[in-house]
Each structure stands twice: as structure tokens, then as C-alpha cells.
């Protein structure tokens, strides 16, 4: 007799647990309008706001005089774990003093190798580089992911000391 009771009790308990599960999913189904969390990405591009600290890509800000803050000290190059940063520098003659001065020629940044670990930004003594919040960098060729961060003809800002 006990076995029979247990048999039926088992069936009812089982059905009850199934019903509780269906209640949960049923709630989300009937409240789908409120509960749906999917964001429709390319459509919401205009309103999409990334967090200010989001690490998208390394950039070098330039001011209106086409001047940046990079002295070419190579601290970031040393700090980078993946060799994504290459600094090609040159000695240019200063027109005023006539002395030769070391400046950057090209700040080469290989985005394809970068892990966005933020170590270069921490290493930079002059705050010349920073992380940008853009992230759409899908391209057909890996070569297109090599950027030269300093703009052509740009100079170091005068107030930046090494």
C-alpha cells in the first residue's frame, strides 16, 4: 500500500516541479515585451554609449595645432607584452638652437597584435597615448590594422619635457 502511495505521490510531485518550471518560462514569455534584453546593435549605433574607461584601441590625441605629447621615449614599446608598438625615431636639427634633437618619426601600432591590456598607457610618462572607445575594426586584410598614430607633419608640444 505504501509503495502505491509513494508511486502516485512521486507522479504528482514530479508534475508539480514541471509546472513550476513552466511557470518561470511562461512568465518571461508573457512578459516578453518588458523582459527582452537583446540590444539591436547596428541599429542602436547612434545611441550606443560605451563606458568612458572602455578599452577599444590605442590612440594619440592631437591638438588643434597638430601637436601631440609623445617624446618618443619608448616606454610604451618596452611595456608592451606583445610587441604591438614600434617607435621609429629620428634626429632632427632644431632650427632655433641648431642642436640635433631626438623626435618620433612614426609611432607604429599593430592593432592585430594588441591585447588591450592598458600597460602602455600606464607606462607613458607624458600621457601621450590613451584608450579610445571605438571598436569597429573588422577589416579584410591584417595589414589594414597597422596604424601610424602620429599624424603626418605633427610635432611634439613645446611644454612636454622628457
Amino acid at each position: 500500500m505504501n509503495a502505491i502511495v509513494r508511486y502516485f505521490a512521486g507522479i504528482f510531485k514530479g508534475l508539480k516541479t514541471l509546472a513550476t518550471g513552466m511557470k518561470v518560462t511562461g512568465y518571461y514569455f508573457s512578459h516578453a515585451r518588458k523582459e527582452i534584453i537583446t540590444q539591436q546593435y547596428p541599429e542602436n549605433r547612434d545611441t550606443l554609449q560605451m563606458f568612458e574607461r572602455f578599452r577599444g584601441i590605442v590612440t594619440m590625441p592631437h591638438d588643434e595645432n597638430n601637436e601631440h605629447r609623445c617624446t618618443g621615449c619608448s616606454a610604451c614599446e618596452v611595456a608592451c607584452p606583445n610587441g604591438s608598438i614600434e617607435i621609429l625615431w629620428q634626429r632632427l636639427e632644431d632650427p632655433e638652437t641648431g642642436k640635433k634633437k631626438k623626435t618620433i618619426d612614426k609611432f607604429v601600432y599593430h592593432y592585430s597584435m594588441c591585447t588591450l591590456c592598458n600597460l602602455c598607457i600606464l607606462a607613458c610618462p607624458t600621457d601621450a597615448i590613451k584608450m579610445d572607445q571605438t571598436f569597429e575594426y573588422a577589416v579584410y586584410d591584417r595589414k589594414e590594422l597597422t596604424f601610424i598614430l602620429n599624424k603626418p607633419g605633427s610635432k611634439v608640444r613645446a611644454d612636454v619635457k622628457e
Binding site: F51, R53, F54, R55, T115, L116, C117, N118, L122, M131
Partner: peptide, 24 residues
């Protein structure tokens, strides 16, 4: 995570000596 350290999964938020940024 993303708001405080800038990344969602591979956060790299620790540095020897503490954490990379202060809390947001």
C-alpha cells in the same frame, strides 16, 4: 567590470601592488 576596468572578460585589472584604476 567594463565600467571600472574597461574590459568585460580579459580585464587585466590587477597590477603588482594593487589594482590598475580606482573604482568607478
Amino acid at each position: 567590470f567594463e565600467e571600472t576596468c574597461g574590459a568585460r572578460l580579459t580585464m587585466n585589472y590587477n597590477v603588482p601592488g594593487g589594482v590598475m584604476f580606482d573604482l568607478h
